[in-house]
Amino acid sequence: MSVIYLLLALSILVAIIFFIAFIYSVKRGQYDDSYTPSVRMLFDDELVNDKKNNLKTDTNTI
């Protein structure tokens, strides 16, 4: 038994894992909307800033 069979099997296995991951993500609807997530990922930072600002103003008023 040559090592090439092992390597071949492994490489195909890895490829198949990625293939299944892709199919799964399509099935979950991740490719239905390709625009909104690109905007959404930018929000988190702003949210944190906003909270900090509010905290600041709160402490100021107290």
Binding site: D33, Y35, T36, R40, F43, E46
Partner: peptide
């Protein structure tokens, strides 16, 4: 616009019984 997405996905802050809201912008 992006403001629309932001505010609509933060609906739970306005009404606590809203568990989640997700915008599909192109649609």
């Amino acid at each position: 616009c992006s403001s629309c997405i932001w505010v609509l996905e933060n609906l739970h802050k306005l009404q606590e019984n809203i568990v989640a809201s997700q915008v599909n912008f192109p649609k």
